[in-house]
């Protein structure tokens, strides 16, 4: 009976994290669409939508001390609670990074941020980041370790793409310093976003196995 109440609260917590992972994935898709199409409305929607992730995070953070106090969870229940704190922080941060990208778009609008030379490499990053967010959401639901490990490979792709973009920017970039700074920042936002997605997956591995992979 009381155990059911605890299960219910842990399920609610898991539900919040699942909703956050979907929001974080939608945010990066929205930000990428705004970036490549110089779409002001899309960028504004990403900025406005971030409050949803902030609210979810606050909800998770309010639930966790209550679960600890009421149920003194141990073993996998305890690991879930500890992971939930970290996962909620990562997902919320992923939303913020999508907002940062959207704000670069808004700052330059109606001029586009992405010249032709950078389009391919940036869209590699955008696709990989979106894919990783989706996978993180799946891993959260399935707790599949193989999928979780897969996220590391996608992250390598993002890191390599960031390097390629930076080398473009430092070797005779024809669009000026301002454009180079914008693109370097956008690339860094994608890269950080991908790192947080990896962190979510790592937390899931910890949740399942009880060990932290470095």
């Amino acid at each position: 009976m009381v155990r059911d109440i605890q299960d219910e609260q842990l399920d609610r917590l898991t539900g919040v994290l699942a909703a956050m992972s979907r929001e974080a994935a939608a945010a990066i898709r929205g930000a990428s669409a705004a970036l490549f199409d110089a779409d002001r409305a899309a960028a504004e929607a990403v900025v406005a939508g971030d409050v949803v992730l902030d609210r979810y995070r606050a909800e998770a953070e309010a639930m966790i001390p209550e679960v600890l106090v009421r149920h003194q969870p141990v073993a996998s229940d305890l690991r879930l609670v500890v992971c939930a704190l970290r996962i909620a922080a990562s997902l919320e941060r992923m939303g913020d990074l999508a907002v940062h990208i959207a704000k670069v778009v808004l700052m330059r609008h109606p001029v586009g941020v992405v010249p032709q030379q950078a389009a391919a490499v940036l869209s590699t990053m955008a696709d990989a980041a979106a894919r990783m967010a989706d996978k993180a959401a799946v891993v959260l639901a399935t707790r599949d370790q193989v999928d979780a490990t897969q996220l590391g490979l996608d992250d390598d792709e993002v890191d390599a793409a960031e390097k390629r973009l930076l080398s473009l920017l430092v070797s005779g970039w024809p669009y000026g310093v301002e454009s180079a700074i914008d693109l370097a920042l956008v690339a860094r936002y994608y890269e950080r976003y991908a790192d947080h997605a990896v962190n979510v997956a790592r937390q899931v591995v910890f949740l399942v196995t009880g060990t932290i992979r470095l």
């Binding site: 155990r3 605890q6 969870p73 141990v74 073993a75 996998s76 229940d77 305890l78 690991r79 009880g210």
Partner: peptide
């Protein structure tokens, strides 16, 4: 034992299942 028990029977008992 209380964070990552090796045996499922331990896990079930300490988590109240």
């Amino acid at each position: 034992l209380f964070t990552n028990p090796a045996d499922k029977r331990t896990e079930d008992y300490i988590t109240g299942r």
